[in-house]
Amino acid sequence: MSDRRILPSQLERMVYETIRDEIVSGALRPGEQLVEGRLAAELGVSKTPVREALIRLQRDGLVEIAPYRGARVIVPVDDDIAEITELRVCLETFIARDIAARRPTDVLEALETSIAGSCKALADRAEEQFVDRLSDFSDILAEACGNKRMKKILGDLRSVLHFIGNSSRRIQGRAARSIAQHEAILEAIKAGDPDAAAEATAVHIRSIAEDCRKAQVPNGDGRLPGPAANAPRAKARTRARANR
């Protein structure tokens, strides 16, 4: 019989991915305290992989760890949003120009499929599928870019970008705006207009940033708005326990 024991490194990765996904989805809210003991109990693991996961999430820019205060989910401030937004604009407008100049058929078809999937998921109120299809659009463009270093930078930023994007979806109408903006980007690419594709991409990214800023304004009770997605925390944590 083969040895099916879970190695410590595998367990740490599972815990990291579970907590990361809950932060990105909004199941763990901005500013929420991340108590090692509580997370360990809910995930059915010891504190060690939780502690290592939180350190890694701090490097990702999703968690803050302060002496004597522990860890908490970051609350994006204007400077954070501005820096991430401008970096994304620089990278993704370059990619949009490149794709618009080349107009590869397979990429255009994949982008159309992504938009169609987003529309269907939104109509069906399938939140998880909507997030996945919406993310596909940027991922398709990044993958089609021939610049390996640019793809790596976007890959390293992926979790933070999704966190910002999901935060913005707390604002009414954000989902429909994202679809419309994706359609504008695709139309510019199909027309072979690099300038229009870059402009549509910049408008989309800055629109997300503006909605993210609005989402950080507390409600009347002093709490930030609730999760953007109805992310099933118990489901994610059950999966982590099952994978042990």
Rank of each mutant, 00 (worst) to 15 (best):
S168Q: 12
S114L: 03
N219M: 15
A202S: 03
E92A: 01
A198I: 08
A188I: 05
A240E: 11
L157E: 05
E199C: 00
L34E: 11
V75E: 14
D106N: 10
D79Y: 01
S167V: 15
R29E: 15
R241F: 07
L91P: 04
G117R: 02
P30I: 02
V63H: 07
K152P: 08
A142K: 11
A188C: 08
G61R: 07
I74V: 15
D98F: 01
A82S: 03
I205G: 03
Q172K: 09
P76I: 04
Q216F: 14
C119P: 02
G220A: 11
V107W: 10
L134T: 07
D60R: 08
A82G: 01
E127M: 00
V107E: 10
K120H: 03
N147S: 05
A197V: 07
A180K: 07
V160M: 07
L87Q: 09
L224F: 13
G26L: 08
H204F: 04
R97E: 14
T238W: 12
S25R: 08
A231W: 13
R29D: 07
A144N: 03
T93P: 00
I6A: 13
E52R: 11
V217W: 12
I140T: 10
V131I: 06
I189Q: 06
Y16L: 15
I153K: 12
